[in-house]
Design a protein around this nucleic acid. Sequence first.
RNA 1: GUGACCGUAGCUCAAAGGUAGAGUCCUGGAUUGUGAUUCCAGUUGUUGUGGGUUCGAGUCCCAUCGGUCACCCCA
Length: 424
Amino acid sequence: MSARLQAVRGMNDVLPEAAEVRLWLEGVVARWFARYGYRQIRTPLLEHTGLFRRAIGEATDIVEKEMYTFTDALNDESLTLRPEATASAVRAAIEHSLLHDGPKRLWYEGPMYRHERPQKGRYREFYQFGAEALGYEGPDVDAELIVMCAALWKELGLEGIRLELNTIGSTEERAAYRQDLVKHFAAHESRLDADARRRLHSNPLRILDSKNPMVQEVVATAPAMQQYLGEATLAHFEGLQRLLRTSGVAFQLNFRLVRGLDYYNLTVFEWISDRLGAQGTVCGGGRYDGLFAQLGGKPAPGVGFAAGVERLVALLAESGRTPARRPADVYLVHQGPGTLEFAFAVGEELRAAGLAAVLHAGGGNFKAQMKKADASGAALAVIVGETELAADAVAVKPLRDDRPQRQVPRAGLAAQLNALLKGN
RNA sequence: GUGACCGUAGCUCAAAGGUAGAGUCCUGGAUUGUGAUUCCAGUUGUUGUGGGUUCGAGUCCCAUCGGUCACCCCA
């Protein structure tokens, strides 16, 4: 028995119809980033495992149980398929001294890998695009990143994506808060669930996020982060909120919003949709001022976000915003000795003139070829039979309306076809 | 990683333990140089995979792979 070949679990083939939507979205995204002065960076899918352990944090779920980590059998190196791109971007910025002449606005797009149980909107290979503003203190750039997201949702025609915002303070402020938080949770340990207990000493802030009602009761009486925030943190947060208000971008403060990666500080935010089920976060990000130093670079601030392509595409599909497919301009049909060569050459002439031309291939009688021409969605059929061959011309038949078929000389054909395509 | 539900033709789905089907798609013809409509004919399958129960399994049981949804987590 030969085992049926199938893709790795949680990893999807993007078939032509879906790929066209993705290609379109990528174009929109690239132009959008360019408008804000962000320049693309491309980093490898594989990194040394240590990069993610140091950047994302040993105690995070991603590092603890979701990374595709393996040993390169050829040299014993431990490598990991990137679960996110911020660590790589910062690594590259340090490695190439990208900030030597000032801060940089960067963007990326590509596949990420996390070994999670697949679910709607959650796959083991998934695409993200995102921005990293490196070397800026903020809060102006924090606001810019959020406002540009709002602009993208608008451009894509997506509605009902809400913004949740929080500040998680500086490292020192968070350490003090964390200490008191652990004290509080430890005192009520009997009412915590297994998950919360496990996090008590590894990542207590995440307990705030628990959906368990019993745990939430304990959370309700816990000390609030706000009481631990200093003047600088509050000024940064207010500066951000002021710019958002000026820009007319609505947001909800969510003091429970904590993110799952250790490198964040100050600003954190998520864009959330209610139409995607349990995986409603379409975009998330925040500030990571300590990451450069943590990765051995010269200290520098940073902010960024990442957006989930599959989730955005699902929203687009759900709201009917996916673009119509664009078929070829002409379909070349040929029948009779010598007509293939003629049609083949005519096809190349048309393509050189900028037209999308599909040549019928694979044989088939005339009727079958015409059926294919129709099914292809092409606006025009360009027909080459023995009569046309003898006249050094082609027959052009509009397939989408009632205009009559006519014979057109080969010379100047592209111009004639363009006129027909425009409706003349 | 945990739980629930699901897996039949390329696609959407029937078949309540008793001969695996329909629509669509595809191919050919009616129309031998003209599509999309209509009519006629035809091909579609180790019922995800491997075991088991039974005279007999798509149907019941076990395992496994995959999907969906939720938990969890996050984009």
